[in-house]
Each structure stands twice: as structure tokens, then as C-alpha cells.
């Protein structure tokens, strides 16, 4: 054990950092794209259901295959890895944003409109804050999945903890496989807890009690 840390300790920290970097970059991209898209979709519910099923189909493409598809287009390295993972982050965030916004109490939205809120004000002041807990749940789910899937980035030279796992598989060294798996799991757990905290903090004060009772 000590021996392992002596030889691979440095590498472990670097790889963990790479892993985190890839996952966070992908998730941020996902948030930036999926939340506005989800809000837009909520304005066109007829189209939204079809669109979301389409994104769902994308999700079913095996992750290894998608990584491989990107090699001819984007080559190898971190960027194609991030892009591929970004596609996987989309669905949970998109769907939760759409559902969250759609399920905002219509009475509240009508009241806002009747008081003279513009469409944008309604989204910023009413719909988004009220849908936030649901949206954050989507972001959390996406993040945890993504940290797991990011191990596959190593397959196209993206680095990260996946490097350990692939090395371990190639060299028949179980210790290396474990060295890749355990930190990835820990990262996912930490990220989940942090986001849970963030979710709690971002939930508007007046909504907390009602959600707790639910």
C-alpha cells in the first residue's frame, strides 16, 4: 500500500485533478446549454416532448462508441472527451429543467403576468427560482454519472483516473484498477454532497419548508 503511494502518489493526484477537470468542464457546458434550452422548451410543450425523447435516444448510444465517433472529428485528447461527456450531461438537466418549469403553479405564473411581468421577468423572478430545486436535482444526478463515465476519457487520451484502470487492465495489476476506481467513487460522493449543499442553499427560503414536508 505504502509502496504504491510512494511510486504512484504524485500521479494519482494529477490524474484525480484531470478527472475532475474533465467532468466539471463537461457538466458546466451541460448546465449552460441545457438550462436555457429547457426553459425554451417549456414555452413549446408540444415540441418539447419529442425533443426530449430524441435527446434520450442520444443517451442510449454506448459511451465508448460515442467517444470513438468523436476521434475522426475532434481527434484525441481532453476536448473530445469533454464534448462527448457533455452530451451525456444534457438529458437529466434538460428534462428536469423542462419539468421543473412546466410544473410551476400556473396560478402563480398567471398572477405574475396579470401584475404586469414581461415574459423574461416571469422566467427570472418566478419560474426559474421556483423550479430551481428540481433543476438542481438534475444537475446533481448528471454530475455523479459523469464522474463515473469520465474514466472512459482515458480511452481517447483524455487522461484522468481512467488511465489507471486501463493500465491495470493491460498490465494485469489489480492494485492499479483499484487506484483508479476508488478515487473516482470518492470524487463522485464528494461532488454529490457538495451539490446537495448548494441545492439547499439555492432553494429559495419560502420554498424550503414546503419541500421538506413533501
Amino acid at each position: 500500500m505504502m509502496d504504491f503511494f510512494a511510486t504512484h502518489g504524485n500521479e494519482l493526484i494529477i490524474k484525480s485533478w484531470e478527472h475532475l477537470y474533465i467532468s466539471v468542464a463537461a457538466i458546466l457546458l451541460g448546465v449552460l446549454v441545457a438550462i436555457p434550452l429547457g426553459i425554451l422548451l417549456s414555452r413549446a410543450p408540444n415540441f418539447a416532448d419529442r425533443f426530449i425523447s430524441f435527446v434520450g435516444i442520444l443517451q442510449t448510444i454506448p459511451s465508448l462508441a460515442i467517444l470513438a465517433f468523436f476521434i475522426p472529428i475532434l481527434g484525441v485528447g481532453k476536448l473530445p472527451a469533454i464534448i462527448a461527456l457533455f452530451f451525456y450531461s444534457l438529458l437529466p438537466i434538460l428534462r428536469n429543467t423542462y419539468i421543473g418549469i412546466r410544473d410551476v403553479n400556473p396560478g402563480v405564473v398567471e398572477a405574475g403576468k396579470g401584475m404586469g411581468m414581461s415574459a423574461l421577468q416571469s422566467i427570472i423572478k418566478v419560474e426559474f427560482p421556483m423550479a430551481l430545486p428540481v433543476i438542481m436535482a438534475g444537475v446533481r444526478l448528471s454530475t455523479v454519472y459523469l464522474i463515473g463515465w469520465a474514466t472512459l476519457a482515458a480511452f481517447i487520451g483524455g487522461g484522468g483516473l481512467g488511465d489507471f484502470i486501463f493500465d491495470g487492465l493491460n498490465l494485469y495489476q489489480p492494485s492499479l484498477i483499484i487506484a483508479g476506481t476508488v478515487p473516482a467513487t470518492i470524487l463522485a460522493l464528494i461532488a454529490d454532497r457538495l451539490l446537495a449543499n448548494l441545492e439547499n442553499r439555492m432553494t429559495p427560503e419560502g420554498l424550503k419548508d414546503s419541500y421538506e414536508t413533501v
Binding site: 401584475m115 404586469g116 429559495p204 427560503e205
Partner: peptide
């Protein structure tokens, strides 16, 4: 329409108070 609505009071059956705003913020929303 937006200006018009701000100049006319509106009360609905479902009450429609903003649950994430305090009573103060709700009252002076307009």
C-alpha cells in the same frame, strides 16, 4: 399590455402569491 397590466389591479382565485418571496416582496411586487 405589460404597462396596462401594471396599472390595473388583479386578484385571482388561486391567490397566486409567489411562494419564494416574503409577504413584503409579494405586496409590492408591482
Amino acid at each position: 399590455p405589460v404597462e396596462l397590466r401594471r396599472s390595473i389591479g388583479y386578484v385571482i382565485q388561486q391567490i397566486g402569491l409567489m411562494p419564494h418571496m416574503t409577504i413584503r416582496e409579494n405586496i409590492v411586487l408591482v
